[in-house]
Design a protein around this nucleic acid. Structure first.
Lengths: 227, 227
DNA sequence: GTTCCAACTTCAGAATTCCTTCAGAGTATT
DNA sequence: AATACTCTGAAGGAATTCTGAAGTTGGAAC
C-alpha cells in the first residue's frame, strides 16, 4: 500500500511516515497544496491523508479537486477542526473518513486499513483470482493452495499487479509505486525485471500458469486468463 | 485465553488488563470501533469485551458485524446503559452475556470463564497444537510432554504466536501486544529478537521442531507444520 | 534497608537474506 | 538483418536478523 500524506507539521509527518514504514506501508509527504497536486498528477496512490489546514489554501478545495479526477484515490481527512460542521462538509465532498487531531497512530492505521479493505476488497480480507489468492492479514499468497514464499517486494508487486489486472503497467509506474519518489525520471528501471522474474519463477514452481505477461516496449500486465 | 477489550476509558481499560493479566488472561485493547475492527481482522481472540458506548459509532453495529463473521468470538457486553431495553437488544443480536457498569473485576472474570467454558465444552483450559501444549491455569507449556521452563514474556509470546498460527506477525504487533502501546515511542523493537531466540532455544532443547519461522523484512510466524 | 538473583533490555559485531547493478545473451519488432 | 527491448546469472552492496555479552531493572529473602 502506498499513500500520500499532506501535512505541514513536519514533526507529525515524520512520526507518521516512520510508523507506517514499520508496518510495511509506503508513505510520501507533501507540505503544501501545490506539492500535493503535483504529486497526485505524477504518481498513483492508494490513499491520501489530507490535513485540511494547509498553509496555502483551503483543504476542501484540494479535496474537491482530488475527487473530481477519474480513478481518484481514497481520502482520509485529518484536521484539528473538530467541529461537526467541517466533518460533514468533508464527508459531503467525497472524503472516505475523518480523523480529528490529535490522534493515536494505531487509530490512523486502523482507519487506513479499513478504507483500503473497503475499496479494494469489498469487505473481505482476502483477494481471489483464479488459482491465485492473497491474504492481506497474514501477508501470504497462494497458488492452488500452495503457499508462495514471497519476499516483501515480491508480495507488494503481486498485489499491485493483481489490483490492476488486465491493465498494462509501465516499468516506471511499477517502480514509482513500489519504491516511491524517483528524482531522476530517466533512471534505469532494470531492477523491476529482477523482481518480476523471481515472482514469475515462484508462481510457476507452485504450479500456477503464466499470469505475468510482458507487453513489449510498454511494460507488464497481470492476465486473469492466460492462454 | 486471549480477549479483546473495546473501551475508550483508558483508566478502566488499564485496570481490567492488569487484573486479567494476573490470572493468565492475555488482554488487548482497542479504543475505537475502527481499531477493534482492524484487530479482529488481523488477530484471533477467544472473547470480545465490548463497551456499547463507543466514541465513533453505535456499539450494536460492531456487535452485529462481529457476529456475522464466520468463527466469530464470544461477546460480553459491558455498558453503562443499564436499561432492560439495551440488554435485550444486545443479547438479541448475539451477545453471549451482559455486564452493567460499574462492575467488580471478579464478576467480570467469573462471567468470562463461564462464557469460555460454555463455548469450549468442558472448559478445557488447555491448548494443543501438534507436539506443543499449553495449560492456562498452571501457566505451563509442554513439548511432547516435556515441561518448558518459560519466563512470563516467553509464555505470553508463545501464546500470542500459537493463537495466531500460520499468520505473519510484525515486530511492532508483537511488541504492542506484549508490552502495551508504543505508538508514540518509535523506538526499535530489537528486544523482541531476544525473547524469540530464547523461546526457540527452549522449544528446540525440549525436542520440538522449528515452529518459529522468520519472515525476512516483515516479522515472524508460528508454523503449524514446519518443514 | 540491603543483598542477591533472575529476568529483561541494550549494544556491537557476525551472519544471513535480500536488493540492485552489470554485462552478455536472447527475443520481438521494424 | 538491424535495432531496441527483455531476460538471465552472477556479484557486490545494503538491509535485516542473529548472537553473545554486558548493563539495568525489579522482586524475593534476609
Amino acid at each position: 500500500m502506498k499513500i500520500l500524506l499532506v501535512e505541514d507539521n513536519e514533526e507529525l509527518a515524520d512520526n507518521v511516515v516512520r510508523y507506517l514504514d514499520q508496518v510495511g506501508i509506503l508513505c510520501e509527504t507533501a507540505i503544501t497544496h501545490y506539492e500535493a497536486e503535483d504529486k497526485l498528477l505524477s504518481y498513483t496512490y492508494d490513499c491520501v491523508l489530507l490535513d485540511l489546514m494547509l498553509p496555502d489554501g483551503d483543504g476542501l478545495d484540494l479535496l474537491n479537486w482530488i475527487k473530481s479526477k477519474a480513478n481518484s484515490p481514497n481520502v482520509l481527512i485529518i484536521s484539528a477542526k473538530n467541529s461537526l460542521d467541517d466533518k460533514i462538509k468533508g464527508l459531503d465532498q467525497g472524503a472516505d473518513d475523518y480523523l480529528a487531531k490529535p490522534f493515536h497512530l494505531s487509530e490512523l492505521l486502523a482507519r487506513l486499513k479499513a478504507i483500503y479493505r473497503r475499496s479494494k476488497l469489498e469487505g473481505s480480507d482476502e483477494l481471489k483470482l483464479g488459482e491465485i489468492s492473497v491474504q492481506f492479514n497474514t501477508f501470504q499468497a497462494f497458488v492452488n493452495g500452495n503457499l508462495l514464499d514471497l519476499t516483501k517486494k515480491e508480495y507488494d508487486l503481486l498485489i499491485f499487479l493483481i489490483t490492476n489486472k488486465n491493465r498494462v503497467l509501465g516499468k516506471q509506474a511499477i517502480a514509482q509505486h513500489l519504491w516511491g519518489d524517483y528524482t531522476d525520471d530517466l533512471a534505469n528501471f532494470d531492477f523491476v525485471y529482477q523482481h518480476m522474474k523471481n515472482l514469475r519463477k515462484k508462481i510457476c514452481e507452485a504450479g500456477g500458469r503464466d499470469y505475468l505477461k510482458t507487453v513489449y516496449g510498454i511494460g507488464y500486465k497481470f492476465e486473469e486468463n492466460p492462454s
